[in-house]
Design a protein around this nucleic acid. Sequence first.
DNA 1: CATGAATGAGTGTTCATTCAT
DNA 2: CATGAATGAACACTCATTCAT
Lengths: 195, 195, 195, 195
Amino acid sequence: MDAARRAQLVRCTVEAIAEVGMRKASLAEIARRAGITKGAIFYHFANREELVNEVLVTLLTEGARYMGERIAEQADPAAELRAYLESNIDYIATHRAEVAALVAIAMNHTDERGGAREVDASVYGESLRPLEDILRRGQEQGLFCAFDTRTTAMTIRAAIDAIGPQLSAIPDLDLDRYTTELVALFDRATKRVPA
Amino acid sequence: MDAARRAQLVRCTVEAIAEVGMRKASLAEIARRAGITKGAIFYHFANREELVNEVLVTLLTEGARYMGERIAEQADPAAELRAYLESNIDYIATHRAEVAALVAIAMNHTDERGGAREVDASVYGESLRPLEDILRRGQEQGLFCAFDTRTTAMTIRAAIDAIGPQLSAIPDLDLDRYTTELVALFDRATKRVPA
Amino acid sequence: MDAARRAQLVRCTVEAIAEVGMRKASLAEIARRAGITKGAIFYHFANREELVNEVLVTLLTEGARYMGERIAEQADPAAELRAYLESNIDYIATHRAEVAALVAIAMNHTDERGGAREVDASVYGESLRPLEDILRRGQEQGLFCAFDTRTTAMTIRAAIDAIGPQLSAIPDLDLDRYTTELVALFDRATKRVPA
Amino acid sequence: MDAARRAQLVRCTVEAIAEVGMRKASLAEIARRAGITKGAIFYHFANREELVNEVLVTLLTEGARYMGERIAEQADPAAELRAYLESNIDYIATHRAEVAALVAIAMNHTDERGGAREVDASVYGESLRPLEDILRRGQEQGLFCAFDTRTTAMTIRAAIDAIGPQLSAIPDLDLDRYTTELVALFDRATKRVPA
DNA sequence: CATGAATGAGTGTTCATTCAT
DNA sequence: CATGAATGAACACTCATTCAT
């Protein structure tokens, strides 16, 4: 079926990019991994860009579902923020190839056209909005202190997104500790201090 | 003179990378901007990598000097942390092309071989250590609370480094506000709360 | 078919090298002769070296077969030596382009790294050993006098290999006479003189 | 002085070609060895070809003088032939760089234009005529048997010229033995056998 | 659906040659 | 006499893309 081949190609592309980097993840390399020929790729995708875009969307969707489920179980915004951090770092730890590919794609996308970016450079793009939601609700419920939700959300995302590159450089990074520290840091930075 | 052309080529490379990205910043493109031929580049640099390395070193050095001067004037670690954030974001705001180039180079360096990187992916590389220094001294002097200095330093850097890509996406980002918010956020996250 | 194009490219390479020399027999020149583009060559051969190697192997194999058949028919080592000389010069006379290409390739291979050559600079490489065999058997059977088989074999090969360059300089060289004289010369130099 | 620089450049070119081969003996490399700049070479030689030609002529002249002196001392053509072989091989043994350069130049010259060669591919070019002279006088004096002097001269030269490439491949070749064997071989091949 | 073959524009790099100073 | 800087044409090689079969 068409969809199966597309999925397989997406998977092979993720692995290729994760292993050899965007530069060397040529269509020939991807085709080799999929066990088909370069030409066949064009039957399923109009061009390279479309294939890479599909990869991007797929990974973003996967990640969003992974995190969304865990966050939904929480009782209040403070717990949700903790769950957001924990589930995100957990996803990164257990999906290194996907994250590596995502980072590589985001990087090469970013510097192409410095104008309107259709895909956020952030690892989880669409997750910036839900994050702001959590922060805003926390403020409304008096759990969080006053701060600009956008800036804070961006900082949280940046702290998480920095893990990917760090993991490549320091493979045995202690992620559990990193998580604990990050949760504590943002707890101090957001919690309301009673008068 | 030799040095003048080298400097010009470095500048043209920065601009080329900032505008069209690493991928398309070919030697032909750089030469075109410099008004010379591709071949002439090889008179001044052994190969592409050496040129890019010179760009990297130049930008890193410039940035470090810019920030170092401001931080040195501060009275205590808390003020230094504020100066670090402010001067860094100020540099980013006033050197957009340089920062864009730096990010692009760091990115493409990273995804090549995920092993030991001689140049940190962080926009200011060497500035992670001085940052940790500030945090540690702040703790020693009882100004800062207990936290892992490495994780916190990485988070601060990540928050700053995230501005570069963000600027590309949202060119009219209010950096003054961003700065104020970030200073406040990390003040809350680091300051010692008296019992 | 793949093999047909490969064969055509090998033939075009032989002709190109024979006519314009190794230096100027660029992939562009070879592609032009084959009526395809440079890039297409890389579909059939990994790189220039592989193409040249295929040419080398092809020509060596052809030559060895040509000579081997004639030599095998002979009754004794003295006749074999004559057949060796005659068939080799005959091959040179009737395959001038091949020989020219072979010489050019061997030459440019030699001066690259003066170390261990996998392919002998001699036009027929592997034919030095069979030549020594003939000489040794001739000595064992009392047909040849005492001499160092290696030196003599090298001299015979040198005399034959000198014809190639000579042919380029003097296109109307009388090869029949050359052959007769060479056969006589090496007959005198090798035959046993009865006491 | 002009002539001194020319001589120095010729010398450096010989060494460069002998060490790195024709291909990599670029003008930059030669200039580096001479301690001047590429551009300066063009003050002394119109172009690369002229420089290489001067090298060729110089080496050929040097070799001819070396051999001529020894041959002139001999009493009869048979002794001259022996002296020719011995002095030539001796020259090769004691002037390896020169011979290596000569071979490399001859090789790359040969395959350039397959037409009229102004310089013989033979290592000593002009020495083919004196060799034929020796052979002819030997026949006239009844010392040598009947044979075509041209073919025999070419064979002798080929046997000697084959030493150069052989030396590169087998650096510890026993030249003394090679000489003895060659002298004996051509003695058998040329001497008159009394009825 | 897929292949095998080819294209063509592009890449970084080398080098003999030129020339103002 | 010589340099330092530059040119420009050539080189081997890569790769997304096309298309007849």
